[in-house]
Design a protein around this nucleic acid. Structure first.
Ligand SMILES: [Mn+2]
Ligand SMILES: [Mn+2]
Ligand SMILES: [Zn+2]
Ligand SMILES: [Zn+2]
Lengths: 141, 141
DNA sequence: TCGCCAAATGAAAACGATTTTCATTTTCAA
DNA sequence: TTGAAAATGAAAATCGTTTTCATTTGGCGA
């Protein structure tokens, strides 16, 4: 990691190391707040801005990307080899990933046929996840 | 429209009428600011909050929905009979709609097979639109 | 190893879109 | 016509994000 960053022109610091490690360990769709809380458990002197800047950095060097599910909170998602979509449960707020290779192919085709050159795709489904059926709002009884 | 709102328990006002009419006339993916500017041309005494509240109302009564493309600005999009996706041009910020009926079918299938019950779908493609090829950043020549 | 300088950090302030508050006005059913 | 509930406009509050600034630190070259 240190070497990788060096090639990109960035330095390694204890804070950065902890933030990077925590981010990839968690392996979730994490917000700044969540990662901030997490790293604070290891080093409570780390500043919020540092966590924010390092999440931005992880994106800049191509290891993650921002995800907006529409609740106004930016989450950070590691980039996977194959593109994936998200199933967002409106009950438990959980995020599940689904393969969308085929879909993206069709989408790209549709876009191209209209003279549009795609850069990236966002495929998200809102609904209720398996575990949340039965405990839906109204009265879960 | 007045009747429709009455059945939902809301009153009609001159401001509301202007805002609703402007929104559906424009028929675009409009932000609060944009619609505010627009209605101001007809009645410059209308407040920003009123425009905001009425866009929210249009959503609440099921005639539109919020769209977040990731630039931090909420846009409002009338709801169409068939679901549609968006091609978002990162150069001119233009939004084009594409049919995604087929895609949504596949998506729903994939979601269901994982025990997930879909409510709504968000399908967005970022890239460069037809008109913006050639005037890309860097130096368009 | 030492010293330098660009990069990184932490605290605080600034930002900006969204949302709420509050006093006043308006709608509309009775 | 009248009163209660809803709507409005201006201003302030919110809140996640981003920037500023003084200080510290990493790491290369001497
Ligand atoms: Mn993901
Ligand atoms: Mn649309
Ligand atoms: Zn769930
Ligand atoms: Zn364009």
């Amino acid at each position: 990691m240190k070497e990788f960053l060096k090639t990109k022109g960035f330095k390694m610091t204890p804070q950065r190391e902890l933030i990077f490690r925590s981010f990839f360990e968690l392996d979730e769709h994490v917000s700044v707040d969540e990662l901030y809380d997490r790293v604070r458990q290891q080093d409570n002197s780390i500043g919020y801005a540092t966590v924010w800047r390092n999440l931005k950095l992880i994106c800049k060097v191509g290891l993650a990307e921002e995800v907006n599910i529409g609740d106004g909170i930016t989450r950070y998602d590691r980039i996977t080899k194959v593109p994936h979509g998200h199933l967002f449960c409106t009950v438990c707020k959980g995020v599940t990933e689904i393969n969308v290779e085929q879909l993206v192919g069709l989408l790209a085709q549709a876009a191209n046929s209209r003279g549009f050159t795609p850069d990236s795709f966002k495929i998200e489904v809102q609904g209720v996840c398996d575990g949340c059926h039965g405990k839906v709002e109204g009265n879960g009884q």
